[in-house]
Design a protein around this nucleic acid. Structure first.
Length: 342
DNA sequence: AAATCGTGGAA
DNA sequence: TTTCCAAGATT
């Protein structure tokens, strides 16, 4: 096969997406270096998360905390609150731990091996930061690149088993010149041309080299092993609010929604916690929520009584915003608001 | 090494 | 409506 890197880089120079955390190929050619902090922050936020969802969070975080040092000095609660709604909250916990380690060390390490020792930075992110921020010739393989490579080489082995094979093939493409732009070019190609459902092969710069296109199976790749069905779970959330306070609790630092602010709730897997308050609870319509590996039906109970709570903290209403809660708990709040309005 | 861990937009 | 899945990491 011909050397694809020059072809793809040429395409990238003309079609690179304009993203808040990106140094454009033109600016990079002028000598502008990416800020490792911004590269790292964006990569963490983008783990299993769409560009559209990340954009506003990235702008908000970099406004509040322009440097790693600033982020390292932030309150845990404020970071969790700002992360609320993005999902995968272990990322937020690891984000702070990583920021503090980096600030203490005086800056980000530049090698992939050192980067990967930091919390929240795995094989993909270490390669991405090393390539994008430091222009090291690392092979960056995310979901986009898996798809592009599977199609380019017509790899029919289903994911996730195909991963090592795809990494090895991707590695044969990585150039020594402009590896950072090349990595971003592969991801842009996967996101905009070599899309999951309907690849736009007609305008793809690599059509002539694509084995799956030749075989007429591009849209079917990559294949994936069937996923297990999601079991249904159920639980109860209690919303207690008076004229000037609402009862909230900080969830355990590990596990589902770990470290987030929430309405007190029962367990959702058999563990059965009691209501946080003796009161006359009104039952509202249940909330339906889909997590990665199960669906949840959460019954919502509401009271306007105050008093001594066995769990949670009475929080002044003026300090409370549902935007500081994870998505599930925002839905619960919406139920309560609707009930109070009617 | 298989399970766990969110959310929402698009088809 | 259902299904898919997005710049994955951790245990």
């Amino acid at each position: 096969m011909r050397d694809l890197a020059p072809v793809l880089l040429d395409w990238y120079d003309r079609h690179a997406r304009d993203l808040p955390w990106r140094v454009s190929p033109a600016a990079r050619a002028r000598g502008q270096q990416p800020d490792p902090y911004r590269v790292w922050l964006s990569e963490i936020m983008l783990q299993q998360t769409t560009v559209a969802a990340v954009r506003d969070y990235f702008l908000r975080f970099t406004t509040l905390w322009p440097t790693v040092k600033a982020l390292a000095a932030a309150d845990d609660a404020q970071v969790m609150s700002e992360w609320a709604g993005l999902g995968y909250y272990a990322r937020a916990r690891n984000l702070l731990a990583c920021a503090r380690a980096v600030a203490a060390a005086g800056g980000f390490p530049a090698t992939r091996a050192e980067l990967q020792k930091l919390p929240g930075i795995g094989p993909y992110t270490s390669a991405a930061i090393s390539a994008i921020a430091y222009d090291q010739p690392e092979t960056v393989v995310d979901g986009n690149v898996e798809r592009v490579v599977a199609r380019l080489f017509a790899v029919e082995t289903p994911l996730p088993a195909a991963k090592p094979e795809l990494v090895a093939l991707a590695d044969t493409l990585t150039p020594t010149g402009r590896p950072g732009d090349f990595a971003q070019a592969m991801m842009d190609l996967g996101a905009t041309i070599c899309a999951p459902r309907k690849p736009a092969c007609a305008i793809c710069p690599l059509v002539k080299d694509c084995a799956s296109r030749a075989a007429g199976i591009a849209a079917e790749l990559p294949r994936r092993s069937p996923k297990p069905e999601k079991p249904q779970r159920h639980g109860i959330a209690w919303v207690a609010l008076t004229d000037d306070a609402v009862l909230l609790e900080r969830r355990e630092p590990k596990g589902l929604l770990g470290g987030t602010l929430a309405f007190p709730s029962s367990g959702w897997d058999g563990t059965d916690l009691p209501a946080p308050l003796e009161a006359d609870w009104h039952s509202l319509d249940p909330v339906e929520h889909v997590f990665t590996h199960f669906t949840l039906r959460l019954d919502v109970r509401l009271t306007c009584a105050g008093g001594a709570a066995t769990r949670g903290v009475w929080t002044p209403r003026h300090e409370f915003s549902p935007l500081g809660l994870p998505g599930l708990m925002r839905k619960v709040w919406t139920r309560a608001e609707r009930a109070l309005r009617d």
